[in-house]
Structure formats: C-alpha cells, structure tokens
C-alpha cells in the first residue's frame, strides 16, 4: 500500500518519476552495460558476453595501442588549442561589443550564427578551405605572399594542413626523463600540425557562443563599477584586465566546462574534415569508438574506449557539479 500522505508530500517527486526512470535506464543503466561489455570477450559479430580473463585485458591492450595513445594526445592538444582560441576570441568579441555601437545586434547575431550550423555542414566546407591544393593556400598566391617569399629565396608557403603528418614541439625526451616508463611511448608527444585546422574550425563554430555567454556577464556589471575603475585612472585596457575580466571568472568557468565537453567528445567535425588523418594525426577517441564498434566489430574494445572517454569527462564534470550544488545548498 502506498501511503497517501507520502504521495501528497512528495507530489513533486511523482512528477519527476518518468524523467528519473528514463535517466536511470538510458544514462546510468546504459553506462553500466557499456562498462560490462568492455570486460567481455565480445569481439566479433557473434555476441559473446563471457568475461575476459584477465578481466582488464581489453584495457591493457588498448592503452598499449599506438593509435589510442595518439587519440589521447590529440584530445589533450585539441582541447587546449580549441578552448584557448574560443575563449580568447569570444571574450575579445564580447568586449568589442560591450559598448553603445550601431549594429550591435547585427554583429552579435552574425558572430553567433555559426553556432546554428551542424558540424557536418561546416566540416564539409572546412575540408575544402583547408585542402592543401587550394583553399587558404590559394590566398598565399593571390595576395602575393609567395611571390615575395620566392624572390627572397625562401620556399613558398603551402602547408599541408590536415594532411601534414608532422608532430611539432615533441616532449618525448622530457617525458622519458620525467616519468618512470616514459620512454616506452610509441608515439610522438607534441602538437600534431594537422589538428590546428580542426581547432580553427571548431573555434569558428563556437566562439560566438562564448561571446554570448560573456555578453551576459558583461551586462551584469554595473556602470558604477566601470566608473569607479575609470576614476582610479585606469585606461580601458587596464579596466578590463584588472577589474572586469576577474569579475567574469564564474562565466569563464561555465563556458570552459561547456566547451570542454564539446572537445572531449568531438566527432562529427573531424569525421567530416579529415577522418583519422595521416599517422592518426587527427584521430580522436570518438572516432576510435565508432570504428571499433561499427566497422571492426570489436565491441569490447570500442566499449572500453568509450568508458575512458566517460571517465575523462567525469574528472571535470563531477567536481564542477559537486561544487556548484554544494555552494547552493549551504
């Protein structure tokens, strides 16, 4: 028997029940199932849910794969490049628009517009723009940059963009000294040049969103604060740097979290722009998961990689959620 008083008191809970149930199944239940798959022998089209022996063998194999190591490196590098660029440019645009200016609404919409488009649509276009035979590289000829370089006896500029296998600023030497076992890495730890165009495309897509988030924050900073800063004799640049940007820290954090969860699971854009890239220079865990699960039928391996992705997200999201809700409840 359900106690009617309990129901009356918790009517709110009753309302939430369908959503909570769906979340329990579709989020928590499925994550548990994926984790279970990652521990099984299921690596062909024939479903085999017996547990592997040793249990963690799939994870051990995966972490030893040069491809997966490259994926981890790429995620790290891409995240840093992308968040740095998107936050920097988004903040810059917000500051430029943080004043009375004709066409403010127009600029705001124009910069936010890419956010409305799908990564597939823009990826298809960006693939053209970063085609080494044409695209941006044509500008080096059109603008005469290459002619100048050649007349100075230098090589003309024609970067390979997403087809360039080079990894610059390699830190393998450092790692070999700093980490026990650091010399066993099978890949170059550095910045894969091919990731740069992808970070640019992602920045183009999301910097407008960052701008909108900052504009919200800037709108909340009163005239008094600005005036007070000005009276202190601070120029505009210093006012932003030492007063306003520190005040925007909460927004920076929320924005960075949202961008982070975009970058950790980035899939469509890379899929449409370059695929795995030369020597896995643009491969990311999401593509690894997709290929292992839906092409090679190595279901346990794909599931294991997806669990690693989830853990990476949790490392950032869980402390954020806990912090946010703790500070709210007190």
């Amino acid at each position: 028997m359900v106690n009617p008083h309990w129901l009356v008191r918790n009517k709110g809970l009753l309302f939430l029940l369908p959503s909570l149930l769906l979340t329990a199944i579709f989020v928590y239940g499925f994550i548990g199932t994926s984790f279970f798959y990652s521990l099984t022998n299921w690596r062909t089209l024939a479903v085999d849910l017996s547990l592997r022996d040793p249990l963690w063998q799939t994870y051990t194999d995966m972490l030893a794969m040069p491809r997966f190591q490259a994926d981890l490196r790429n995620t790290l590098v891409f995240t840093v490049l992308f968040i740095g660029l998107a936050v920097g440019i988004g903040l810059g645009l917000a500051i430029l628009l943080d004043r009375q200016i004709a066409g403010r609404g127009f600029f705001r919409s124009a910069f936010l517009f890419p956010y409305a488009l799908s990564f597939i649509v823009t990826g298809v276009v960006w693939r053209w723009i970063f085609n080494p035979e044409t695209g941006i590289n044509l500008f080096f000829d059109i603008l005469g940059i290459n002619q100048v370089l050649e007349s100075a006896g230098m090589r003309p500029l024609s970067p390979g963009w997403t087809t360039d296998p080079e990894v610059v600023l390699s830190v393998n030497q450092v790692l070999a000294h700093a980490l026990p076992g650091g010399a066993t890495f099978q890949i170059e730890w550095g910045i894969p040049v091919a990731l740069i165009p992808i970070a640019i495309a992602a920045t183009w897509q999301l910097s407008g969103f960052v701008m909108a988030m900052y504009l919200g924050g800037l709108g909340g900073i009163s005239r008094q604060v600005r005036d007070a800063a000005r009276i202190d004799g601070a120029g505009e640049f210093r006012m932003y740097r030492s007063v306003i940007i520190p005040m925007l820290t909460p927004i920076t954090i929320s924005t960075a979290i949202i961008l982070l969860h975009v970058s950790l699971k980035i899939f469509d854009l890379v899929f449409a722009m370059s695929g795995v890239g030369p020597g896995f220079a643009t491969d990311v865990p999401a593509i690894f998961v997709f290929e292992m699960m839906f092409k090679a039928a190595r279901y346990n391996l794909g599931a294991a990689a997806s669990i690693v992705m989830l853990i990476a997200s949790c490392l950032i999201i869980v402390p954020y959620l806990v912090h946010t809700f703790r500070s709210r409840e007190t």
């Binding site: 794969m65 030369p278 020597g279 896995f280």
Partner: peptide, 11 residues
C-alpha cells in the same frame, strides 16, 4: 582493422 591502423602509423 589492425593492419589498417598499423599501415597508418608505418606510412
């Protein structure tokens, strides 16, 4: 799949 991955690295 493993051969394809190894080739991607070897190239």
């Amino acid at each position: 799949q493993a051969l394809n991955d190894a080739l991607t690295n070897f190239v």
